[in-house]
Amino acid sequence: MSTETAEVKETKASEALFSKRRKKLISDPLIDDNPITIQVLGICSALAVTTQMQPTLVMAISVIFVMVMANLTISLLRNTIPSRVRIIVQLAVVASLVTLVNEILKAFAYDMYKELSVFVGLIITNCIVMGRLEAFALGNKPYDSVLDGFGSALGYSWIILAVAFFRELLGSGSVFGVEIYDGISSLFGGEFSLATNGLMVSPVGAFIILGLIIWVQRTKTGYVEH
């Protein structure tokens, strides 16, 4: 046994920057352990911001930034944080980062700030962020925590982007503001126009799309909730 632990320590000391284990930290949350579709966390913002691609992308980038930085900070402090106040410490760190993102958006992307500021503020309450801090960053080294945060945020991001893609396409007939439906109908000489679906722009649309994504994913992976 003792040799085994020693071995593990040795490999750890010289572990490659992107070793298999570390790659898994990033790739696991994308499909197999996706925060939205498997853990069903962070649903509220997935419903709220996904009517259009562009704000969704800004939201995704913001979440990635907040999660990576929060995981890094908490991981660096993990040995000094008193366990009795750890939740409030995590909250303070996340809230500060979120305020930072909001201030930066206000200065450099005012249009996005107007649209998103409420939801960016709500990243604080996004269970994925606190969940990863509590479950991973408190007990792991900084670099691993950064990878873990990045992976989870990426898993969250691709799902909300996928939902936003279908919601904007079906609900507004466009993608990233580019009028797809108008383009298609003018391609056929404008003889018909495609109708947009109003259901898709309301949160109900997000539920439906999200449900379909989860269905497809679980059919493929065979995942069953216990």
């Binding site: 201030e103 206000k106 200065a107 450099f108 005012y110 249009d111 107007k114």
Partner: peptide
């Protein structure tokens, strides 16, 4: 960021 934000609001 204050001055930059003020400019952004003014422009808006």
């Amino acid at each position: 960021l204050g001055p930059i934000q003020k400019k952004a609001v003014e422009l808006d």
